[in-house]
Simulated scan of single mutants.
Amino acid sequence: MKLALFDDHRLGVLSEDEAHLIDVTTAIPASDRDPLTAGWWRGLCRDWTELREQIESAASSRTPIPLGDVHLRAPVLGPTKIIAAASNYRAHVAEMHDVQERTLGTVHAWMMEFDVFLKAPSSVTDPAGPIVLPRAVLDEDREIHHESELVVVIGKGGKDIPAAEASEHVFGYSIGLDITVRSPADRSRRKSYDTFSPIGPWIRLRDEGYDASGVDISLTVDGAVRQQVNTSDLIMNVDEIVSYASRIMTLNPGDVIFTGAPPGVGPIRAGERLVTEIEGIGTMTTEVVAG
């Protein structure tokens, strides 16, 4: 099953032909509907096992809506945090030596080691974007790069989660772009501008046996292939990332994890169209504009 948020943050189930949504908003418990506090969404992520049957029942009895008639939102709502994995593909680590030499004039060895960092939840934007390139950054002539990534949405959450049990704490998977300014600033600052975390177009639920450990990721810019990788090449796989992050901070229902940038990062410019595809999830098409 694939779930989407649309229009005024209503909940939809994607049809099998992926051309329609079925509105199942009224099938979930009435609770906090404010998209900022997002209590109902976190409750859905946490309590999916208990809520699934009634949502499936609603989806089977309601009239599908053509996707073209709705506005797809980012399929995450009010996460308490966005966690991102750094230096998680060896080929990306290798290319970053040249990228840093070109954009910073030096290489920071510590940035070549795997770790996690935080992005501002306010950086999340809808799958179609637009990604807004900040005027101040453009005026400084800094490069702004794309990083296409598998995104994990946390389900029941937890602390000190063993890697062997990590999948039980995952709600589902989506597509994300970790947009990045190449500058000497802290990672969290360079990656937290508004619109720098497009996510979508929906969530592929984990509990149907979807295995994210060996899926293809690709990104094109105006039709030219920039990134192409398989998640089997991750240094730390999804279960290990979830476990590692949970040893540092408690993972809450609805939290978001970006799993790491593949090789092939590069600058984006206003007017370009980014198409990101992840096997078994779908395709996200995002526009770029200047601020």
Results as ranks from 00 to 15, higher is better:
residue 7 D to L: 02
residue 155 G to P: 00
residue 110 W to E: 01
residue 161 I to R: 00
residue 258 F to K: 08
residue 229 V to L: 06
residue 94 A to Q: 07
residue 95 E to M: 03
residue 11 L to P: 10
residue 192 S to V: 12
residue 179 I to C: 12
residue 234 L to H: 14
residue 94 A to Y: 00
residue 104 L to T: 01
residue 264 G to V: 03
residue 78 G to E: 08
residue 131 I to A: 08
residue 58 A to G: 06
residue 1 M to K: 05
residue 200 G to F: 03
residue 227 Q to L: 12
residue 40 W to K: 09
residue 137 V to S: 06
residue 248 I to H: 05
residue 58 A to E: 02
residue 269 R to T: 09
residue 129 G to F: 01
residue 29 P to E: 12
residue 12 G to N: 05
residue 216 D to T: 05
residue 269 R to S: 10
residue 111 M to R: 15
residue 197 S to W: 00
residue 67 L to C: 11
residue 113 E to Y: 01
residue 83 I to F: 03
residue 265 V to A: 14
residue 117 F to P: 00
residue 236 M to A: 07
residue 30 A to K: 13
residue 104 L to V: 03
residue 44 L to V: 15
residue 233 D to E: 15
residue 253 P to T: 15
residue 252 N to R: 12
residue 191 K to R: 14
residue 153 V to L: 09
residue 98 D to I: 00
residue 38 A to H: 09
residue 169 H to C: 07
residue 289 V to Q: 05
residue 176 G to H: 03
residue 264 G to A: 06
residue 255 D to R: 08
residue 9 H to G: 00
residue 7 D to S: 06
residue 142 R to W: 04
residue 200 G to T: 04
residue 112 M to G: 15
residue 153 V to K: 04
residue 243 S to M: 05
residue 207 D to F: 05
residue 263 P to S: 15
residue 10 R to N: 10
residue 128 A to W: 11
residue 282 G to Q: 10
residue 67 L to D: 09
